[in-house]
């Protein structure tokens, strides 16, 4: 099950907790992995840990030119991009009435527009190969909303609508486009929460615990696999029951 031998995967945000774990999971299933992220040091460290079949591809997703170049760099390094995981994301939280245009735009640029451009950049190769997997990492807040995160929630909901539309268009080419929507996951992002905040969140999670990056990576591995060939346009919610959608 879930054998990715001979496939090449590009993962953005691979320097982060969830992205790194996604890279480990796909690599563990036999794929070549292109590790992208803004900070090169953690990418190098991860590539060193994975050993063969790992390529470091630094890219700042708020830089439009760098985004345009990334699919080509990945295809040159690995020979193809069969699997794209748009995992990179940023937050710039603020209450709606205080949210600046810049806070809004920068979050939309990195989380949504870069996803659009990367999908477009890898599509030609996938169409020719008549095989492709795109997994966009959305968020529970894209479905439920969250105070202080109008920009992030809009971008994450936008990813879902975009994924569904693209899924329609390329389904006959054997390319699937899906989203994974994590709930609260143990990462650097959630480590910053106070104990009180954590307590409140736990009260809303039937599983009464945060998820692990490995539990997100497992969902991505499934959607990237040949076995998920009949699954497209869906959002797989991995949230401990916090929102049953």
């Amino acid at each position: 099950m879930f054998d990715l031998t001979g496939k090449s995967a590009l993962i953005t945000g691979a320097s982060g907790g969830i992205g790194g774990e996604i890279a480990r999971a796909l690599h563990g299933a036999g794929a070549q992995v292109g590790l992208s992220g803004t900070r090169e040091a953690p990418l190098q460290e991860l590539a060193g840990e994975l050993g063969e079949r790992a390529f470091v591809l630094p890219c700042n997703l708020s830089d439009a030119e760098a985004v345009a170049a990334l699919p080509k760099q990945a295809a040159e390094a690995m020979g193809a991009v069969d699997i794209l995981v748009n995992n990179a994301g940023i937050t710039r939280d603020n209450i709606f009435m205080r949210m600046s245009d810049d806070e809004w735009q920068s979050v939309l640029d990195v989380n949504l527009t870069a996803t659009f451009k990367l999908c477009k950049g890898v599509m030609r190769g996938m169409m020719k190969a008549r095989w492709g997997r795109i997994v966009n990492i959305s968020s529970i807040v894209g479905a439920t909303g969250n105070p202080g995160q109008a920009n992030y929630a809009a971008a994450k909901a936008g990813m879902v609508g975009m994924s569904k539309s693209l899924a329609y268009e390329v389904a006959t080419r054997n390319i699937t486009v899906n989203a994974v929507a994590p709930g609260f996951i143990e990462t650097a992002m959630t480590e910053k929460l106070t104990d009180e905040q954590k307590g409140q969140i736990m009260g809303q999670i039937p599983m009464a615990r945060m998820g692990t990056p490995g539990e997100i990576a497992a969902a991505v591995l499934y959607l990237a696999s040949p076995e998920a060939g009949y699954v497209t346009g869906t959002t797989l919610h991995v949230n401990g029951g916090m929102a049953m959608l």
Partner: peptide, 9 residues
């Protein structure tokens, strides 16, 4: 419409 994109490619 996707066929026409592929033809151009």
């Amino acid at each position: 419409s996707l066929d026409t994109v592929e033809l151009v490619m």
